[in-house]
Design a protein around this nucleic acid. Structure first.
Lengths: 298, 298
DNA sequence: CATCGGTGGTGCGAAATCGATCCGGCTCGA
DNA sequence: TCGAGCCGGATCGATTTCGCACCACCGATG
């Protein structure tokens, strides 16, 4: 096997026309160039230069080598430019994964702010349903709601965020109608696969009929806004929605805790550190909202 | 400027999955690999591997490097083969890879003849189990048994040889004992991982008990010679063995076709042409033996 | 629980590489 | 004609690199 670095010396000689010129360009002693060219020729079993008194001149074989050496150089340059300082510099790609509801209802404005603040960071938001795998480097940072701290993967580094509370909600108009004595059925709205938590059944308003099942959270919100019935929602979504009110007689309940998760080596990069610091400050500011304590308008 | 040879080390680690595996593949000490990877990462200013207890794993930056390192390797291989292809002298190295059974039981005498005929050609026979990679120039010529022509690599040049047949064999003494009424169990002898082909089950002699499994072909032959039972073997091996006979009532079956494979530029060299012409003549002469038609002694 | 085979990491002495220097040959122009 | 300024090549001591022998760690295994 040839020493790839010898090809670099070969290129310098082919371009400089002499061993000494190549040595100067490479910043090494000319005897080093001499030895490495000799080594390359010996390993390839071919003469690539005519050793003239006026310098080194490419042979026919050398011309062919030159072509492929140029290819190697091109790849090497691409390699360097693409990756050089990738970790230290701000410039580069940052992938963030989070739950869709968090993205659309809460922190998308903050992501936008961050992107505006750091135009060199190419951002990719992965909020497509299921959890991305940090260990496989599908994402660099994950923002997750964790119900039980013990379920956190041990190989990830976690930064604890504020706690997230949920409540029982219904349409403001529907509640008014119910108070006025309307007898239309009020149904439970649930996402398929999920049940109705016990703590949500204690309100004054009684439901009737079968549950109304939706496929995802957005449809669930739409349904409750249309006055379809009662559902449980995170406070930060429902409290911010003027069409929704908490069902009288119900309490809040903790959904879980927000965690910023990063992984191994990627945590050390500048981009990831910038993002985690930024977003954790923003999350901290959201703490009252997330806890359901910001009912200024009600 | 990075040391281009470090990229070669990088490739080995990326493929081997660990520093030690890469070191073995490169034929150097693992601490050397460790140092050169560290040097490359430092010069590029980026982490290319996560240093896990289970080994080195590519980071996102490493994935990008890998792509371009592969390009460099491709150019390097082309460079080597191109130069080698220009070499028209008889003197030099010629590497041939073939299946171990072919080497030991059939064409080693022919390789010896060729070596005697061309003392200036330094020969290297690679018959260590797995297929050598011609594209990486691990070998110049490959002699392979090909079961399906479609599986031939498209980038290689193939010269078709004779067809290879196999049969069902057992020990001559064992068959005589069976005919005399001996009731000792006769077992199937198979190489671990291989099954018993349907076409081999049709003979007069019935097997009993569990299969007898061996790790390689040589052990298989030794077992059948000891009268352990019945097995399938290429005709050119078994017909040449006076201790073995075909099981009555069984037919021959085609194993595949012998192919002489050469690669790109190396095909043009004098040494390779000399060898392929020589060995294909010898193989053609073996055609009856390989087809199982030379039972002069039975 | 001990063991065993795998991993990455670390000093240290040996070995290979490099750099400085000198030498001879060639060319070209004063 | 002769010396300046190139060139490649050889030698030798300094420097870097490498291989070896360890260590700690982890996971599987008996």
């Amino acid at each position: 096997m040839i020493d790839w670095d010898d090809v670099r010396y070969f290129l310098a000689v082919a371009r400089g026309g002499s061993v000494r010129a190549a040595a100067e360009r490479l910043g090494v002693n000319h005897s080093t160039v001499l030895r490495r060219i000799a080594q390359l020729e010996q390993r390839l079993g071919a003469q690539m230069f005519e050793k003239l008194p006026s310098g080194y001149r490419l042979t026919a074989a050398g011309e062919e080598v030159l072509e492929l050496a140029n290819q190697m150089e091109a790849s090497s340059h691409l390699l360097e430019t693409r990756v050089f300082g990738r970790d230290q510099s701000v410039r580069g790609l940052l992938r963030v994964t989070l739950a869709p509801t968090l993205a659309t209802h809460l922190i998308m404005p903050d992501l936008a702010d961050f992107a505006r603040l750091h135009p060199d960071i190419e951002m990719e938001i992965l909020s497509s349903g299921e959890l991305a795998n940090l260990t496989n480097r599908e994402a660099d940072v994950a923002i997750r709601v964790v119900y039980d701290r013990k379920t956190l993967p041990l190989n990830l580094h976690g930064l604890k965020g504020p706690e997230l509370f949920g409540g029982v909600y219904m349409s403001r108009d529907r509640l008014a109608a119910w108070r006025a004595g309307a007898s239309d059925p009020i149904r439970w709205i649930v996402i398929s696969g999920h049940g109705i938590p016990d703590w949500a059944r204690e309100g004054e308003v009684r439901t009737t009929g079968e549950a109304f099942r939706t496929t995802d959270g957005e449809a669930q919100i739409a349904a409750v806004r249309q006055g379809m019935g009662i559902t449980t929602l995170p406070c930060f979504i429902a409290d911010a929605d003027p069409l929704l009110v908490r069902v009288p007689g119900t309490d809040l309940h903790m959904y879980g805790t927000l965690w910023l998760l990063t992984q191994g080596e990627t945590r050390k990069t500048k981009r990831v550190r910038l993002f985690t610091e930024f977003i954790s400050r923003r999350l901290a500011a959201y703490a009252p909202l997330l806890a359901g304590l910001s009912l200024s308008r009600d």
